[in-house]
Amino acid sequence: MSKPKVNSLRPGFMPPFILERIASSRSDTQLQSRVQRTLEMDRYFRDQRKPDVASAMAMPLGSPQPGQAARYIYSAEYQEVLPGTLVREEGQDETGDPAVDEAYRWLGVTYRFFWDALQRNSIDNQGMPLLGTVHYGRDYENAFWNGAQMVFGDGDGEFFNRFTKALDVVGHELAHGVIEREAGLVYTYQSGALNESLADVFGSLTEQYHFEQTAAEADWLIGAELLTDRVQGRALRSMAAPGTAYDDPVLGKDPQPSHMNDFVETEEDNGGVHINSGIPNHAFYLAAMALGGYAWETCGLVWYDTLLDSRLMPESDFVTFAALIVENADRRFGSGSRESTVIREAWQAVGVIP
């Protein structure tokens, strides 16, 4: 049974409440102005309907060979245009521009993870070309998936580095495309938090796969490379300990909960999508750590099975998702198996299921 397609708000990596804190702080007015511009652009993109992939840009052809990425990196040249000027495509040598070459490399690594670990051929599972635009805007403080491509800002250099620097950020944005194609999780409230969590999960797994890290060896941080030395924090999110990623005089304190007892009821941030995603994130971490070994070989398979499950609806909540996770763990590893038991206990530990 095919799932209904829903036009959802555009997901962005940077939580808006962090940018709002910077914009309202007493830092220099030039920085405040740049951050305010990022917020205005993000609001614009959130209000846009999904672009028509065929007409939004001249789409290059995908790779004719399954297992081979087709990457096209553009530069917006500090303008607010998409896709921009093509500067590197599949098979070409490095350009010497760090943002261009990082986007190219990390998109290839993410493609390889989805292909090798999950047997998925790109975003649409049919070899869709991977389009990335770098140098978007001036000091743009975000990265996003717009329904047709990934877009990366350069950051301000004061609080945030360029968004292509972090493999898990690039993986996170590509994963949003996969999530949109498969489940179309509406980007508000609990379904939106699941959307964000799944992107974090696959972004983290991409990094773990690339560096051959077991669950015990991984840092379980999201966006660690984004923060400059000025920020008092380790990353933007922590799957191991939601709520502890940063505590900074300007950015504020990481608001993520790790348990349903602390679920945040809010109308901000599309109903708390970047906040309450800490709960399903932590469930994944607990299950992966309890099972040990390579997380993409156990929990990663079950989470991906659930993303593909026709019963996962665009507005599914945490309880629905957790129930499907447990059923898919039973199906893949056997009812009563160690894997199934551990995964169920992880969702119990964060208070989603009894």
Rank of each mutant, 00 (worst) to 15 (best):
M239A: 12
N276P: 09
A56I: 14
Q213P: 08
I123P: 01
Q48V: 08
G157I: 11
E89L: 04
F144G: 02
L86H: 09
H259S: 04
T306M: 01
V6W: 09
L194M: 10
M289R: 15
A23D: 10
Y78A: 02
L167S: 10
T133V: 09
L308H: 10
T38G: 00
G233P: 06
S204D: 14
V109E: 12
L251P: 13
A76I: 10
F211Y: 13
G300E: 08
V100K: 03
R332L: 04
A346V: 11
D168Y: 04
L167R: 05
Y285T: 12
L198F: 15
V81F: 06
T214L: 00
M128Y: 15
H172A: 00
D116T: 14
D139E: 15
T38N: 00
V151E: 08
K50G: 03
V35W: 03
T266R: 00
A287G: 10
L251Y: 11
H259R: 02
S310G: 03
V273K: 02
L286C: 08
T244Y: 03
N328S: 05
R46A: 07
T214F: 02
M239K: 07
R105F: 06
G233R: 07
A69D: 14
S191N: 08
E158M: 12
G293S: 07
L324I: 13
S310C: 07
Q126K: 14
F211R: 12
P129E: 12
G67P: 07
E77A: 13
A346G: 09
L251V: 12
V151S: 01
G334L: 07
E90T: 15
D47C: 04
S25M: 04
L236Y: 08
A58I: 15
A175Y: 10
V350W: 08
V87F: 04
N281S: 07
M57T: 15
N125W: 11
F45R: 13
D330E: 14
W145S: 02
R234T: 07
F318E: 07
S63P: 12
D219Q: 09
Y44F: 14
F263G: 05
Q68L: 11
Q65A: 03
V201E: 06
D168F: 03
A323G: 13
R21Q: 13
Q79D: 15
D47W: 05
R138Q: 14
D248L: 01
Y78W: 11
Y209D: 04
L131A: 06
E196D: 05
G223V: 03
Y78F: 09
F152N: 00
D124V: 06
S122P: 01
